[in-house]
Amino acid sequence: MSAKPVIKTDGLSKQYRLGLTLKPVDAVTDLNLEVNEGEIFAFIGLNGAGKTTTIKLLLDHARPTKGKAFLFGFDATDPHARERIGYLPDLPHFYQFLTANELLDYSGKLFCLSKTKLAKRSGELLETVGLGDRGNERLRGFSRGMLQRLGFAQALINHPDLVILDEPLGGLDPIGRVELMNLITDLKSKNTTVFFSSHILEDAQKVADRIGIIHKGHLLACGKKSELLQTKAGWEAEIAINEFDLSGLCKKNNWQYQTNEECYTVTISDDEDVQKLYKLASEKKINIISLHHRQLNLEEAFLKELDRWKA
């Protein structure tokens, strides 16, 4: 049985008109996307690719020039569509004059949560994001990381079924990133759908179930992480170090290699070179410890899709 789409876009397009000449700029073009219940979906692309614009269209912060977006089956322009949603913007700008408790109180009231539920939920969330003792402090004194964590708390105030995070990992220190990624995987364990945009591919690769790659407003690829990364990227051989100078051979054949105290790790792009390596191994008494197909990492898959699009 296929999962229900929580997010669905149908030919979604957005064109802005910029400058005095009202020059048209396509921010998103004909985007067809489906995000299913309970999955972590990473929406990746370079800066200016159209990630934030897509999120704005999903949240009715901007109206599409063409096409439609649906959340839980509701048209995205209908406020009911946002009843089961939590959202964290790319830059955590909140009211400086409010305290953390007041911000959560405000957020909860917009979902019409009762006073008692709200007080309990605010306390829980501040504890979860590590701000349990800062509830009565004004946001003016909060660091960027603290605001990001508070932003995450306000996004979860209504126990959302879908959380939309715009570049949630940007601007966080390594510990903050690990903590946030743990929170994201925690959400998945509660069957909450997470849609997040990022240009930090390493983190996206770690947590995402499915990935969409967007570039200049066009969706270049979209699918399960395992499908996107399964493309074979040549071979990888581990070779034991002996008296033979393997580095010279690698340079001569234009093979990439790395070495440590015990072995070389050689990357070979095509099958002919594998034959060549086997022949040399028997001639020069080289010990090949292992030889296997190499899989792409997300960065390579991303660059490959970009090259294909340019071609």
Binding site: L59, P79, R82, I85, P89, H93, F94, S107, L110, A155
Partner: peptide, 13 residues
């Protein structure tokens, strides 16, 4: 200041 973004992401007309 973009403070409006999280507010209008809620079910508010």
């Amino acid at each position: 200041r973009k403070t409006i973004l999280p507010i209008l992401a809620k079910p508010l007309h």
